[in-house]
Design a protein around this nucleic acid. Sequence first.
DNA 1: ATCATTCTAGAACGCTCAATCTATTTGTAT
DNA 2: ATACAAATAGATTGAGCGTTCTAGAATGAT
Lengths: 203, 203
Amino acid sequence: MVRTARFSAEHFVDAAIALVAEGGPGAATMQAIARRVGAPTGSIYHRFDSRSAILAAAWNASYGSLARLLVPLLQAGRPREAALALIPWAGEDRPRARFLLLHEPVALFEDAPPPEPLRQAMEQLEAEMDQAFRACIARFGDGTIRDEDLSRAKFLIFDAPIAILRPHLLAEAPIPAFAGQMMAELHAGLPFAGARAGTTHAA
Amino acid sequence: MVRTARFSAEHFVDAAIALVAEGGPGAATMQAIARRVGAPTGSIYHRFDSRSAILAAAWNASYGSLARLLVPLLQAGRPREAALALIPWAGEDRPRARFLLLHEPVALFEDAPPPEPLRQAMEQLEAEMDQAFRACIARFGDGTIRDEDLSRAKFLIFDAPIAILRPHLLAEAPIPAFAGQMMAELHAGLPFAGARAGTTHAA
DNA sequence: ATCATTCTAGAACGCTCAATCTATTTGTAT
DNA sequence: ATACAAATAGATTGAGCGTTCTAGAATGAT
């Protein structure tokens, strides 16, 4: 090698995540990212081709962290534990949680789409998560996967827990204890897959 | 009067809502709004002081439409019907629903805060909705309102239904029939207020 | 010690945007 | 008809953005 880098790709990604978490996607300008790291703007381009490349890397890092948590639990057939695991996950790294859960990805890439290799990585992560959901459902029913079952599972394990966490993430408040209780009640109250009230079976 | 206006404030607001719904807050530039209406950019400033004024007006129009739907039902003590009413509301005007439910307000005003009179109108609308939630809860318990009860109510009537609708709004797909069933099961499964399992009462 | 390479450093460029400005058009009241 | 107020019309301005460019500094291999 030739010269030690003062600023790593991770530094820039972390800064981007923090900026988006605090002020929305528009707050993560190249200059703001550089300022936060203490680097000149030009140095960012030694690590990333463009702004959308940083944002895609930030999304991959955040979503990847979530996938590493949820996918094993889903494949093991433990949906309830997956939903509950979101609480400590959100508590451990609030900027990452706010980045991922509070802003639509579409808003990150409205100026320019992410470069090809990163876009593929994003799709791969989403496909992995989708497959894990399907594997989890298959364990509870007769093996066939219906759209309705997939929607229910994603709601119970992903969207509903996020909806429970969102107000507290927005308010920068700690996650209250009853959040976990609400998730548990949710899973107790809604049939997961297979036997659904009023459709295939009675009651 | 002196000259008939070709472009009303409503035209510009509708265009802004549609643009945000389609491509996120950044897509609603003054020039894009003007182009969509068929007006020159300067004409927008005869109706609105600034870009954030339009976006605030758009938010007020959308949230106001939602408040007019939910507040009476909440005050009448019909939370389940309020939650279910969101489905036809979202179906009737998709751009408005996408504008309001798919993007965090913080992303709308990250460049500049809304001007004072509009900011107050926004707060007033949110306060009205909050009061309606409290009134609804008070009918079910002994009159006292706890934070946990308020969180549960807002989740059941607002955030959870939105979480059910969100994937279908994002995909531009029609809202499937089982969405309503999921909301109904949700309300059947989670205690609304007052008697909560494991806290004040047993079972 | 020198070279090749990779980084820092930050000024500069081109572009788009919100907002302003000047000129023109239009409908109404006199 | 004419005057006037309010709107259209769109070029212009200045700021901020992403990106590029030029220069210099640092490091390991020769």
